[in-house]
Design a protein around this nucleic acid. Sequence first.
DNA 1: ACCTCATATTGAAAATTTTCTATATTATAT
DNA 2: ATATAATATAGAAAATTTTCAATATGAGGT
Lengths: 103, 103
Amino acid sequence: MDLSNKQITVIFKALCDENRVQIFRLLQGGERCACELLDEMQLSQPTLSHHMKILCDSGLVVGRKEGKWTHYSISADGAEAAIKCISELTAVTETEGKRCCGE
Amino acid sequence: MDLSNKQITVIFKALCDENRVQIFRLLQGGERCACELLDEMQLSQPTLSHHMKILCDSGLVVGRKEGKWTHYSISADGAEAAIKCISELTAVTETEGKRCCGE
DNA sequence: ACCTCATATTGAAAATTTTCTATATTATAT
DNA sequence: ATATAATATAGAAAATTTTCAATATGAGGT
């Protein structure tokens, strides 16, 4: 993959806010339009819109416009990419114990 | 697992900052003490210490104290837990298309 | 006991993020 | 064309996060 540090932060910013995590829980039940999400969240409409932008920017959520509505859903591809990213970042490539600081 | 929204944000906060992502890249080479990390990052010592606290709080990094030094490394268990968390959060449990907003 | 080294904590400034109100945009209906 | 409905954008206030300087803590060494 080879994402920049910056790109990685954009992905995981999706999960750094309690409201956005809650939105994931709502989207687990399938595609939802913004108005439905707004009903269930204690947020103003512009604030929800702001969070949806961050979620879409992360790639973990996709928006589908249809007439007046925008339908949001979890992206399986985005989720896979995020998991791959975290796997790669946490994979230790160390072959053997290099020691430091007087060990 | 069943983590609260808040607990989930604590995990992924680790990956929401470019400096912290860079610290992961350094730790991929194996355990490092704070002074080594400090050498390689453009940060003051207190700022590094602050980031290491956030990383340890996330569970993705563990600190091991040894004499004057603290040695940090990536936690395989923490990584696994984070991956499980993101998998669960992005798993769509929808059985069939429920429609809304005039579809 | 004192000094030094490694790291952590405190407290405040700077930067970023979250939130809201007001307004704009875009689509559909009348 | 006008009105209404759904969502997005702009701009500013509030909250949080990042950062650093100063200081504290704690572990060895002399």
